[in-house]
Design a protein around this nucleic acid. Structure first.
Lengths: 334, 334
DNA sequence: CTGAAAGCGCTAACAC
DNA sequence: GTGTTAGCGCTTTCAG
């Protein structure tokens, strides 16, 4: 059942059918009704490929993230999908992992689908802070063909739009609070070396410096994002002394909590732990986590708003920084 | 840069270029190399729409789940995406929610995309157990146009392929263990009334019956899937007595754990809690959860295997049941 | 082994 | 307000 069949049954030309399908005003009400009813009766659905061929667009947005199984990504993708559907866009999803090669491959592949725009979720796509680094060249290349939107990442460039958290400030603030409440040896716990982590690290170091505390390599720990593993690694470091933890995500923080529990340390009196993301993990462990809310929904919302405005031909800002919020669930006074 | 350009530059016809692109053997090695190099030089990418138009396929699989933000769905989607990519398929994702109307709408919309197959993740798409119920009619209709794969759901019908957990048996087994270890009032805690939940409920009731215990309505609790809410609801039920909990997912179980902790009840001595899914939640709370592993990866794997076999024209089983496994993390002896 | 040409279903410019 | 027609880029007979 194609446009020709419908045209024949309705006694009009295919152009008229096309006009009805696309909501053109240049059709008499009577004809429109006739065509609509024929379409209805026959469950006619326009062929998206043919339409795509002509318009060179299929109303589809590409979304790439390292892995949707990650709670943060999952929330973001879920949110993006819902908003995009509202606007009549579908989304095709790629999980790229964190390897440079895989990320480039994912972008290459998804570009072939002639998507209308590309969303990259997560700071892993930003490279390691050096904005001119060749590691983001593939993103600039993609931006040459379609608009690229970064969620919690920042890259300068034509046709690239970034919405990101002020992670440096958030961590600076949180660590400063820890210090003011008397903590002196604050463990910085992370699981990757993304742009976002670099920002957090800077906030951490700045807070230490401005408060006259030394920045110590032994207090920066890179590990894997698995709760039991984190706990066990921390337990194994018998000689490592710390009185508080700033983790770059909640799962890591839960690992630290479990370590403290295993050691019989009281949280928050003898050990402070601050997580990141305000995910379900943070209300899952015991005691629950004080955590930095990265406002994922807000980033997603701003991104979609920008995108829709851009696709309508309006001007949009290339960079939108968003403040984080500290969610206190378990702290000594600060 | 289209197929005509490439043909001209390579000094051949478009038919030959097409043959090279599609790996046809009817091309001389020399010509093939020539064409390939021209394609390479010009970064030629075939237009997927045009190709889709001719073949009526774009090598794309549709995935629908209630919500990817849910940890279980996220894991499944992540896994499916990875496997599908291996086989050269892309996936387009829809989150449908749980409303009947929304689910039907999601299926309708995604079908218009001319996907090659449809995967429905989660037992919500199975209706409430009545296989002939009109609530699954839309799925049968979809199956009239393309193969439909259910992950943890079961619907009979032409062109519908189901892979699902033996939830009834798993719960029967778990509850029987609780009873053997001396529990008498087992709370059945759930957040929806899907097919899967119905199965679990049956296992629960059968275990009670076969052990001579009464099936009590007051010990079946339907709530929302939010940890603090579950805790608070349980705390508010001052008069509700129970000595153990069987929850249909881990988040609910964590809520029960938090309630027990708040009441000062020792787990597992004074209160047993069993979760479902073996998600990260289960190792997040304190004490950690004994939980039933629904082997999500296994279901996904079997589904993809089936799909690829089917798309190659081979025969595949319409139903594949998979055993669950009990993961003990915190139990009195059983 | 290669080329010419007929679609695939739809959109949009152009006529009426 | 409606119809005619020329593409959109590719696949696939059918000839040679």
């Amino acid at each position: 059942m194609n446009i020709y069949d419908i045209a024949k049954l309705a006694g009009v030309s295919i152009a008229t059918v096309s006009r009805v399908v696309n909501g053109s005003p240049r059709v008499s009400e009577k004809t429109r009704q006739k065509v609509l009813s024929v379409m209805e009766e026959n469950h006619y659905t326009p062929n998206v490929f043919a339409r795509g061929l002509g318009l060179d667009s299929m109303q589809t947005i590409g979304i790439i993230c390292p892995d949707v199984a990650d709670a943060y990504m999952a929330r973001a993708v879920s949110f993006l999908e819902r908003r995009l559907k509202e606007y009549g866009y579908d989304c095709i999803l790629y999980c790229s992992g964190h390897d440079q090669e895989k990320k480039e491959e994912a972008v290459d592949l998804i570009m072939k689908k002639r998507i209308d725009a590309l969303i990259l979720v997560g700071s892993t796509y930003t490279g390691y802070g050096d904005d001119d680094s060749s590691s983001v060249e593939y993103i600039r290349r993609a931006a040459g063909r379609l608009p690229v939107f970064l969620i919690n990442g920042k890259i300068s460039g034509e046709n690239i739009y970034s919405v990101y958290n002020r992670d440096e400030e958030a961590v600076y603030d949180a660590v400063s609070r820890l210090i003011r409440s008397g903590r002196k040896r604050i463990l910085f716990l992370t699981d990757s070396r993304s742009y976002s982590v670099a920002q957090k690290m800077e906030g951490y170091e700045r807070a230490l410096r401005e408060n006259g505390l030394p920045v110590l390599g032994e207090l920066k720990l890179l590990t894997e994002n698995r709760i039991h593993l984190v706990r066990d690694i921390l337990l194994a470091r018998r000689t490592l002394e710390y009185d508080s933890v700033l983790a770059t995500n909640d799962a890591l923080a839960v690992g630290a909590v479990k370590c403290a529990n295993a050691k019989g340390l009281k949280i928050p009196e003898e050990m402070s732990v601050i997580g990141y993301n305000n995910s379900e993990y943070s209300v899952c462990c015991e005691p629950e986590l004080t955590t930095i809310d990265n406002t994922a929904e807000k980033l997603c919302n701003l991104t979609i708003d920008n995108m829709m405005r851009l696709l309508k031909g309006e001007e949009v800002p290339a960079e939108v920084p968003v403040e984080c919020m500290l969610v206190k669930r378990c702290t000594t006074d600060f």
